[in-house]
Design a protein around this nucleic acid. Structure first.
Lengths: 142, 142
DNA sequence: GTTCTACTTCAAGTCGACTTGAGGTCAAGA
DNA sequence: TCTTGACCTCAAGTCGACTTGAAGTAGAAC
């Protein structure tokens, strides 16, 4: 029995034990049993936690992630879903890139007020426009 | 008096009126007065709202944004703050880039299971590692 | 003058991902 | 055997940014 104690898992995965309990409740992970009260885990849970963390940073919700595991526990990652998410990330990356450049520009811009800087103004207009257009759809990843 | 009605502002800025009231309560915007019960706004509020929206997509909280306006209403954007945020965005962009590439790879990867794909595994390990390391600091922008 | 409608206030609710607190239990070390 | 400390459960709280609901009001159209 090479099972891991919850404390061990928490340590190795870098998440608090409370999160592990929470994930278990949500059905994202499962413990193999108890030693006394304490949850024991198969070492494979570490991989699963990594997968979960990965999904999270990619912008998936816990519910979406839960759906990515087949009932047998094997990940059944929908390739279509992955590439959709990649596209989404791509858009987000471009957006953030524009923003970063603008911030840098504003930080260096000699105009007395940012409002008088053409670059900054154009950025403002873009933001407003995209707000108006996408009023209906709530964007993920912020 | 070229003041705008709250509905007009909501429309032009692309935000619901409830948000405008909320922002006012938070001190982010101000109305110039009322016509009957209805709030009236100086057209300049549109610019301010754009600035707020911009700050939000850059990952600033409403409180942070509030601090960016001097008491007189003029934006007093700290250049240092801007470039710090730009750096932060830069890191986030790189992170997302790696993720996007990995997702694309996984979507195309011929390995029977993602867990058997070396690229995917390395990604998993990276995620875990960065989780362990940054346990203390809560990252903004997700 | 009445009705309609879009606004108003204020408190409370929502959403996601956890965390916290109170009170309880149990394996291991002294 | 007793104590300790780390776990346990379950309910409730937190955080940020809003939204929603109930009950009220005023300007405008008829």
């Amino acid at each position: 029995m090479t099972d891991l104690d919850i404390a061990e898992v928490a340590n190795r995965a870098g998440v608090p034990a409370s999160t592990l309990r929470f994930y278990e409740e949500k059905g994202l992970i499962a413990s193999t049993g108890r030693r006394g009260l304490r949850r024991q885990y198969d070492p494979g849970v570490l991989e699963r936690l990594a997968l979960i963390a990965l999904g999270r940073t990619a912008g998936f919700s816990l519910d979406e992630i839960a759906r990515m595991f087949a009932p047998d526990g094997q990940p059944r990652i929908d390739r279509r879903m992955l590439s959709d998410k990649a596209d989404e990330l791509d858009r987000r990356i471009r957006e953030l890139g524009v923003l970063r450049d603008s911030l840098r520009h504003a930080a260096a811009c000699p105009a007395p007020s940012h409002l008088e800087c053409p670059t900054f103004r154009r950025l403002l207009d873009d933001v407003t426009e995209s707000k108006r257009d996408s009023r209906h759809l709530r964007s993920p990843l912020n």
